[in-house]
Design a protein around this nucleic acid. Structure first.
Lengths: 231, 231
DNA sequence: CGTAATATTGAGGGGGATCAACAGACGTGG
DNA sequence: CCACGTCTGTTGATCCCCCTCAATATTACG
């Protein structure tokens, strides 16, 4: 039952807002969080331009965030996995600046911004975790710059796969065998490469025995080699 | 005299931590801030790996932040102008994750992290501004992804110049005529392009009458045209 | 003033985009 | 459950943008 899910027993707590809160703190945070029915593949959770009402924490499933530029072209800026918090880029002007869409059925925790603001005033630990999460997001996106600039298509894709594998591991899932919930086009868009290039490189990596790809399913056969290719 | 500079009379206050604080709040913030002698071109303000003691606000001058990857290659991730706060990427693990070096003589305000933490507890406005600044940094770096992916060298450079011009304008300076404090190599590194490409495109933009470049000095002759080229 | 760092310009080559054709997977409705 | 159409993925051929290498010019700085 959905109603039985609480921060106190959520397996993603260590990655999410509750990190390092005591039992009392977690309970207080839990009271302001709303949990609804799951959203489905292709459902849009957030539209760019909407005023910021809540942040969202991913409980299960995955989503993508993207902007649409002046030419109407989609640019994916993030893939969200369980434990991720969505909406930090909206705090600057209280307005969401990107779209967020489900890549598969996903369960979310809704965190009303006004309540979070209040709670952060009273709970130093929560405040620190907000800072940590936002700081981490700043770091990650800056890192990504380094990955995209001056790196070949193969390096970019290898880096994408290892980063994704690491994130799965953090979440208690296998980093050797996982499913890509996004399309090749999504990956290409994110990495600044064409669909064809993504497809070709996946085939090449498979031919070299580094990974095994069956449609959406990826098996990392030689993790250390993949890691090298990412450099 | 340096000692006469305070948040209350700093022209960058609206871009910086004091934004929207009342007189009392600004005064309290001001008491925790330390101001030292200027640092000089090529001086390194922060090393990656150092534990986070303070954030730095730029009062004058400009700096660059960069990481050094596994291959020893520098990757510039940011250029800092007056009003910018340096160090937000260090909050996640209390450790600086990038190097920061002065591009010219620069004056800085040093904000001890422990005092800032205390003050943020007591001042909701300061807390909100911390969130706003970090959120803005998240947004900007995500935007930059969109700029670098799927865009030609000319589009990237035009975008770089317009963004820089806009930032100068925010700071009360001319957005039509300004000095590049970074080298062509720095710009290329930041945008994922070679020095030669930067040089060639600057020449081309000059030949088309969009800008006039005399070494470090840039005159934007046709701002709207430059803006179009950035799309 | 001399040396090193920075910038400019040219020539050639390669990585990845684009265009095109086809194959496979998915989902929807009969 | 199968037939169909659409969406997604693969592979090949061609082209062009930008990197690389090289030479020279200009600027910055002790």
């Amino acid at each position: 039952m959905t109603s039985h899910i609480h921060c106190q027993n959520c397996s993603m707590a260590a990655l999410c807002l509750p990190y390092q809160l005591d039992q009392d703190g977690m309970a207080r945070l839990d009271t302001i969080i709303q949990r609804h029915k799951p959203i489905h593949k292709r459902d849009v959770l957030v539209n760019a331009g909407e005023s910021l009402k809540c942040l969202y924490a991913v409980r299960s499933g995955s989503l993508k965030s993207y902007t649409i530029d002046d030419n109407g072209v989609e640019q994916i800026i993030d893939f969200h996995l369980p434990g991720d918090v969505i909406g930090f880029d909206a705090l600057a002007n209280s307005q969401h600046r990107s779209y967020t869409q489900a890549l598969e059925t996903a369960m979310l925790c809704e965190i009303p911004m006004s309540s979070l603001d209040e709670l952060a005033e009273q709970m130093p630990g929560l405040r620190r975790q907000m800072w940590r999460l936002m700081s981490g997001e700043i770091y990650n996106s800056k890192q990504l710059l380094g990955t995209l600039n001056n790196r070949s298509a193969q390096q970019r894709l290898a880096n994408f796969l290892t980063t994704l594998a690491d994130r799965f591991k953090e979440r208690g899932l296998s980093n050797r065998s996982f499913r890509l919930t996004m399309t090749r086009a999504d990956i290409g868009n994110y990495l600044g490469l064409s669909v064809e290039t993504i497809s070709r490189i996946l085939s090449a990596l498979q031919a070299e025995g580094v990974i095994d790809v069956q449609n959406k399913l990826v098996n990392v056969l030689e993790p250390e080699r993949l890691h090298e290719l990412a450099q």
